[in-house]
């Protein structure tokens, strides 16, 4: 199942690379995609049937806009902290409990947090995610986990679960 899913994805990518529908091109592309899928198919993530659920695509598009909005907000926040003469930063590492399951969802969450300016994901160990934060505003675990992860978690859960 995983091998076939990877093969189809790679075939689409090959068509995007070459952008022609010749017979020779298709045959060479099929052979290349087959070799690639045979070697890397065992590593491809499970749950390929998610490709067939249309509502996941809908939530992915919504998530894109939410993420962009958060990203812009965080950009202004970091720019304020850098340009302010007093340099009001208070860097620290916080440990947040994860509420999402599945490695794809966790990777998505970690990458979203890294892409947002001001926060960088360091590691995921068991059910906890370690985040370097430019301004640790509170020491209450409830509050900061809601502030960092809560804004993304509910959408990611809808995309990947």
């Amino acid at each position: 199942m995983r091998y076939i899913a990877l093969f189809i994805v790679l075939m689409l990518i090959w068509l995007l690379f070459t952008f022609s529908l010749d017979a020779g091109n298709l045959i060479v592309g099929a052979v290349c995609a087959a070799i690639s899928a045979a070697i890397f198919g065992g590593y491809y993530p499970r749950g390929s049937r998610m490709f067939f659920h249309p509502h996941r695509y809908f939530w992915a598009v919504i998530y894109l806009f939410i993420f962009l909005w958060e990203c812009i907000k965080a950009n202004f926040d970091v720019a304020y902290r850098v340009l302010h003469p007093g340099l009001p930063i208070k860097p620290g590492i916080v440990k947040v409990k994860l509420n999402v399951k599945g490695e794809m969802a966790r990777t998505m969450l970690a990458n979203s947090i890294t892409m947002t300016p001001g926060t960088i994901t360091i590691d995921i160990i068991d059910d906890y995610i370690y985040i370097h934060w430019i301004y640790v505003s509170s020491h209450d675990a409830e509050l900061y986990s809601k502030k960092i992860c809560g804004r993304f978690e509910k959408y990611i859960r809808r995309i990947f679960e």
């Binding site: 790679l10 990518i13 090959w14 290349c32 690639s36 890397f40 590593y43």
Partner: peptide
């Protein structure tokens, strides 16, 4: 490495390999 890197590798690895094959065959 950590789980994040492993998962990204799972997604990207095949595509990188296919890109290499594309560069070679074309």
């Amino acid at each position: 490495m950590t789980n994040i890197v492993k998962t990204v590798t799972r997604i990207i690895g095949g595509v990188v390999f296919l890109f290499g094959l594309y560069i070679v065959t074309h």
